[in-house]
Write a protein that binds this DNA or RNA. Structure first.
Length: 803
DNA sequence: AGCACGCCGACT
DNA sequence: GTCGGCGTGCTC
């Protein structure tokens, strides 16, 4: 028997299956989808069995045998193996990367070299003898002296020492030690053999007698009997109990309320949406629905009941949410409805916890997984529904290899399992809404809020007028007044500012110099906490200059605002207000996210000030005012999705206000109130924005009218990057159809990062059957020759941003 | 990617 | 004379 194995080596010529002989003793147990340890050249590596066969094109006597089976059961189903091939091809990634992304990081191979000595007496070197301490096997990394390494090499040549690579998981299965206590007669018999002096043993034995035939965790036994471990050990030796290790899970410590929530009554709109989804699931059709529901319209309830429906049929469900909204508020709702049938996967879990959640899914102990992007690869084998909440979020696109989009994977899996997909959003991506309009997806509309509350009233404040009136604060007069009123009424306020830190740049008022990063083509950001200037791209950090580095003027000023500065200004304007700041800097610690939100929900603060991360999912009854301090920050990015992102953000943020009994009010401060993304966010009507934005996209040839692929080049040498970018663009031009547009190559928006010059090239196409093949050839040229010259190139099919 | 093999300068 | 520098080439 022969196994095709994809080995854990990400390199161009290795990106294909290698054939291995399956030793006789493995033939009965080996299956596709198990991990194996195989010899590869002079070393041992981890690999995935992707195919079993009886014949090979190679000289069969040259095949090496598989060294070891790492799994007895497949960790990847045939469906996932098939999917990995597609993901690798469509995203132009290595197949090994596509395989690894489907499994928790804990299961990736950890390699450790060991030296093994057959006959210790043959080792004469005293340093090595003392290091071995009588062991015949020790980790090679314990040898630090380079001279000794050389000696080991020599011993290895002579065959006295062998070097062996151990491959293990990064994180092990957690086990607890348990004992099974013998029956009463046996305990009595042992009792009679124990000497009367052994008081502690007698004491423990009495305790054990009270628990005859039971299986108990060792730690519990010791605690409850107040006896030390050695005593128990002695009794185990005498046969009073049998000790064993039992696999267990690391329980994420989030408080779990289970099975306590019941389905809510549905509105007519929710009901008809649910009926359509259930019908498609009953008919086993792989239909994709776009659930377009305004904020507060109760999309989650539709998800919950659609899941209920498929669970009743014995099928499983995957729910994806953006990482940022994977708050306890969201996940506990699923746990309350489905109890212990839910596994949760998010970045806050440790590697071990993620691994445990994965094992629960793999063993079919749960039926629902709620998680971020990578949960789309949950190892279910009978999926009944897949849901992507906030489907427009760019976090569904992975930014490194394999650059897959969870939405594409969801649709592929739904076709395999013949089940529906729900894409849910208040502000769908243009791509999805366009597909729904064309009938590719089925559009479901929720146009009313579930509790019939009014949408909050939105006021756009023109900050140019404020400036003219002499208000140079970051709070306009109307917003400041509104804040003051809420503070008086003891209602809560959310303030949104899409920029962390303090100031965005440092400018000399005499010569106009902006302090730049020495390695990148970008200005430095001022951080108040340690009085430094930082580059957010390469990590460069320097002290704040007191004089302009160009003209030595002392008139240096900080411009732009971040959350840190906003916090200070609030303190000045409203000294009595209690403020909670929530951004990357205040949520770095594990659990701080939850802590801040809990404090706010318990009324521990009046104002929640934050970035992106407060835009979604918050649902607190007492929030009646939302203020967007600067709506323009996302609007002027050099990206075709800038307007869409801004509209989505404004709508999402506004949706935080007045979700319950109290009416909500929203203020949006901007320097460009006439821009349609802001103008139309006022009414929070999606359709007019969609129509407007579609016009722009059509005019400039962007998605959804064209597909796009972005190719980025970078090199330390400006001339070389231009040269290679030209070569690449020319190659693509010559290979693709004449209807396809090649934009560039042109310098990237940030033309230099970390001392590397950046160029990029955009491919726009409507239909391009040869795209993947062409890109494969381009990558081949890059990997076989250009890379050696110091070039870095990346290919991103359907990039989330071209910035 | 690693690792071994192989062919040329500065040291015991 | 040897140790070791990293160029080149292969991995079932």
């Amino acid at each position: 028997m022969i196994a095709e194995v994809i080995v854990d080596v990400a390199a161009y010529p290795i990106d294909r299956p290698f054939d291995y002989a399956v030793p006789y003793n493995m033939q009965e147990v080996i299956e596709c989808g198990v991990r194996v340890k195989v010899p590869f050249g002079p070393r041992k590596v981890l690999g995935y069995v992707v195919q079993l066969k009886m014949e090979t094109d190679l000289d069969e006597s040259k095949l090496k045998p598989i060294d070891e089976l790492i799994d007895l059961e497949p960790v990847l189903s045939n469906e996932l193996l098939k999917l990995s091939k597609i993901v690798a091809r469509e995203t132009l990634a290595y197949e090994i990367d596509a395989l690894q992304v489907m499994l928790p990081a804990a299961m990736r191979g950890k390699y450790e070299k060991f030296i093994e000595v057959e006959e210790l007496s043959e080792i004469e070197n005293p340093a090595l003898v003392s290091l071995l301490k009588g062991r015949t096997r020790m980790p090679l990394k314990q040898v630090t002296d380079p001279a000794l390494l050389k000696i080991i090499k020599e011993y290895a040549k002579e065959g006295i020492i062998t070097v062996d690579t151990a491959i293990s998981q990064r994180t092990k299965v957690k086990t607890v030690r348990m004992i099974h206590i013998a029956n009463a007669e046996k305990l009595q018999a042992i009792d009679e053999t124990i000497h009367a002096n052994a008081k502690k043993q007698k004491e423990l034995l009495e305790w054990l007698k009270g628990h005859a035939n039971e299986t108990i965790v060792v730690a519990t036994v010791l605690r409850e009997s107040s006896i030390q471990a050695p005593v128990l050990k002695a009794l185990i030796k005498k046969g009073a109990a049998i000790e064993s290790s039992v696999e267990t899970y690391r329980e994420p410590d989030a408080p779990k309320l289970r099975d306590t929530e019941v389905p809510l009554n549905l509105t007519d709109e929710q009901r008809s949406a649910l009926d359509l989804v259930n019908k498609s699931s009953d008919n086993n059709t792989p239909e994709t629905f776009l659930l377009h529901g305004i904020t507060g319209s109760g999309k989650t309830e539709v998800y919950l009941q659609a899941i209920s429906h498929v669970l009743k049929k014995g099928k499983e469900a995957i729910v994806l949410v953006p990482e940022i909204s994977l708050t306890p508020q969201m996940t506990s709702r699923f746990q309350q409805r489905f109890g212990s049938l839910v596994a949760v996967m998010h970045s806050g879990l440790s590697a071990g916890e993620k691994y445990d959640e994965w094992r629960k899914i793999h063993r079919k102990e749960v039926k629902v997984v709620v998680g971020a992007r990578s949960a789309i690869f949950a190892p279910f084998e009978n999926i009944g529904i897949i849901i992507l909440d906030e489907e427009h979020e760019s976090t569904y696109k992975q930014e490194d290899n394999p650059r897959y989009h969870a939405r594409d994977v969801a649709i592929w899996r739904s076709e395999y399992f013949n089940c529906p997909v729900i894409l849910g959003s208040a502000t769908p991506s243009l791509e999805s809404y366009a597909r729904a309009s064309k009938g590719v997806y089925t559009l479901l509309e929720l146009s009313k809020r579930a509790k019939n509350q009014e949408l909050p009233s939105v006021t756009v404040v023109d900050m140019r007028e404020e400036l003219k009136d002499g208000n140079r604060s970051m709070f306009s007069v109307p917003l400041a007044e509104a804040v003051r009123i809420r503070l008086e009424k003891k209602e809560q306020i959310v303030l949104f500012l899409n920029k962390r830190g303090f100031s965005s740049f440092v400018l000399c008022r005499d010569c106009g110099t902006v302090v730049q990063c020495p390695n990148c083509d970008i200005s430095l950001t001022y951080h108040r906490s340690n009085e430094s200037l930082k580059c957010h791209y390469c990590g460069h950090e320097e002290v704040v200059p007191l004089k302009c580095p160009e003209c030595e003027s002392e008139h240096i000023r900080f411009f732009g605002t971040g959350t840190q500065k906003a916090e200070e200004e609030i303190a000045k304007l409203f000294p009595a207000a209690r403020v909670l700041r929530m951004d990357v800097d205040t949520t770095r610690q594990k659990g701080s996210h939850e802590r801040i939100l809990r404090k706010f929900s318990e009324g521990g603060a009046d104002i929640l000030l934050g970035t992106q991360m407060i835009a979604k999912g918050l649902d607190f009854p007492n929030i009646t005012l939302v203020g967007v301090l600067a709506a323009d920050t996302t609007l002027h990015l050099a990206d075709f999705r800038a307007a869409e992102k801004t509209f989505q953000l404004m709508t999402q943020v506004s949706g935080r206000a007045g979700r319950h009994e109290l009416a909500g009010e929203v203020f949006i401060q901007t320097y460009t109130p006439e821009h349609y993304a802001i103008e139309l966010a006022k009414t929070q009507h999606y359709e007019p924005f969609y129509n407007m934005e579609m016009g722009t996209r059509k005019q400039y040839g962007y998605p959804p009218f064209f597909y796009i692929t972005l190719i980025q080049f970078s090199h330390e040498d400006l001339m070389k990057v231009i040269d290679y970018a030209d070569k690449g663009a020319t190659f693509i031009k010559n290979s693709l159809s004449p209807e396809t547009f090649i934009i560039g190559p042109a310098s990237a928006a940030i033309s230099r990062v970390n001392n590397r010059y950046r160029y990029q090239c955009l491919i726009k196409y409507k239909k391009e059957p040869k795209l993947i093949e062409t890109l494969q050839q381009l990558i081949k040229m890059y990997r076989t020759s250009w890379m050696k010259d110091g070039l870095l190139m990346s290919v991103d099919v359907d990039p989330s941003s071209i910035f």
